[in-house]
Simulated assay, not measured.
Amino acid sequence: MVTLPRIAPMLATPGSLPPEAVEDRWAFEVKYDGQRAMVYLPGDGTVSLRARSGADITAAYPELTGLGSALDSPAILDGEIVALDSEGRSDFERLQSRMGLAGSPTKAARMAQVVPAHLILFDAVHLNHSLVRLPYTQRRALLEDLDLDGAHWSTPAAVVGHGAQALEMTRTAGLEGVLAKRLTSVYEPGVRSRAWIKIRHVRTADVIVGGWVPGRGRLAGLPGALLVGEWHEGALRYVGSVGTGWSDTERTTLAGLLQVAAIDECPFDEAPAVAGARWVLPRLVGEVRYVTRTRAGRLRHPSWHRLRPDLAPDGTT
Rank of each mutant, 00 (worst) to 15 (best):
M1W: 11
P5F: 08
P9F: 10
G15M: 08
P19Q: 06
A21N: 04
F28Y: 12
E29Y: 04
V30P: 01
K31Q: 07
Y32G: 00
R36I: 03
R36V: 02
Y40D: 05
S48Q: 14
L49G: 04
R52W: 07
T58M: 05
E63Y: 08
L64W: 05
G66T: 01
L67N: 02
G68S: 05
L71V: 14
D72F: 08
S73V: 14
P74M: 11
A75C: 09
L77R: 11
L77A: 11
D78M: 08
D78E: 12
S86M: 05
G88V: 00
S97V: 07
G100I: 00
G100R: 02
S104M: 04
T106N: 03
T106R: 14
M111V: 10
M111L: 08
Q113Y: 07
P116C: 08
A124W: 10
A124C: 15
H126Y: 15
L127D: 05
L127A: 11
H129S: 15
L131Y: 15
Y136G: 03
Y136I: 04
R140N: 10
R140P: 01
A141W: 06
L142H: 09
G150K: 08
H152R: 12
V160Q: 13
L167K: 05
M169D: 13
T170C: 12
A173Q: 13
A180Y: 08
Y187L: 07
S193E: 09
W196F: 09
K198N: 11
R200T: 11
H201L: 10
T204A: 10
T204Y: 11
A205R: 13
V209M: 06
G211W: 06
L219Q: 12
L219N: 12
G221L: 05
G221W: 09
G224N: 00
L227F: 00
E233F: 04
G234Y: 02
A235I: 01
G240Y: 08
V242E: 03
D248P: 14
E250H: 04
L257K: 10
I263E: 10
E265G: 03
E270W: 07
A271T: 14
A273P: 00
E287R: 15
E287Q: 14
V288L: 11
R289N: 05
R289S: 12
R293D: 00
R293Q: 14
A296Q: 12
R298M: 12
L299D: 01
W304H: 11
W304D: 01
R308D: 00
P313L: 04
